[in-house]
Design a protein around this nucleic acid. Structure first.
Lengths: 149, 149
DNA sequence: CGAATCCCTACTATACCACTTGGATTTATG
DNA sequence: CATAAATCCAAGTGGTATAGTAGGGATTCG
């Protein structure tokens, strides 16, 4: 029941881009260093995000990546779904491509998987990148406060 | 972000035992047939459930497995945790054995994983096997109703 | 006794993950 | 224009987990 590194690294990268939003393109190298991720591997992940229109790229020297929308308009769900597809605890409840088992609609176990799926979706569709930025700022504020005690 | 067959088959088996609750031991063969699972593989899963005290076994002819408690006292979470361990979308938020990343407590991404984890836990700790039995009875009622239309 | 059942240990094929390797292409800057 | 900084692209690779299979031993009812 774990996310793969695709989703996890992807969100970290998008968060890093959010912190840098409005300040021009951020090169992959910087993202990889700050989040401690293999640069070449992250390249493959961000390629997916680009194809799904979540980030734009600027090639050449001084290039890099930028969010394609404001952090408040991108949810955690957008990022995770781009990299991992629709998330579901079982194949029979994947939205859009559910594979029916022999029990079809009348399966109680399936009902449980649906509840889990919906509960996760509710979280990831609610939290935006902006929320994460705000939380980071809150953390930084508390840190400097603690510093003065 | 999927459950493995361990958790999925395990819950199906426990549900089958719930439907048979109070009627003596149910042999593995019957469970495997009704839920369409490899008997020998299911054997390994139910061994785990037995070690964790969720089912009791009766050896010999006319033997089989029984729930160790009433269906209302066993949650979906009990079953899944027995077979898959504490569930969490990332290693850094596994209850009891969280592995800190370099960012430690002050990690915004980690906050997101915690929200997902808690949301899933809320679901699986709330739904009991009895709830599943009730739902099955509801389905059966509707089916026979539809039959009379 | 023998058939039905649970119990236990080991082995295995396949697939996926998490990268690495090795380049080709684009572009700002000196 | 040359160079360095960067994105883009395709293929290979080692390890690990999943989802079983194989084979036999131990117990108990009839």
């Amino acid at each position: 029941m774990k996310l793969s590194t695709k989703g996890r690294y992807g969100l970290k990268a998008m968060f890093e881009l959010s912190l840098h939003f409005g300040k021009g393109p951020l090169p992959l190298k910087d993202i990889a260093e700050k989040q401690n991720i293999s640069e070449h591997y992250l390249e493959q992940l961000i390629a997916t995000l680009r194809k799904d229109g979540l980030v734009n790229s600027v090639r050449g020297a001084q290039g890099g990546y930028l969010l394609s929308s404001e952090p408040k308009d991108i949810t955690v769900g957008d990022v995770i779904r781009s990299l991992e597809g629709n998330i579901a605890p079982a194949d029979c409840v994947i939205e859009g491509e559910a594979i029916d088992c022999d029990k079809g609609e009348f399966c109680v176990t399936r009902g449980v998987w649906k509840k889990i799926r919906d509960s996760v979706n509710q979280v990831i569709d609610t939290v935006t990148l902006q929320d994460m930025v705000d939380e980071q700022e809150e953390i930084d504020k508390n840190k400097s406060y603690m510093f003065y005690i």
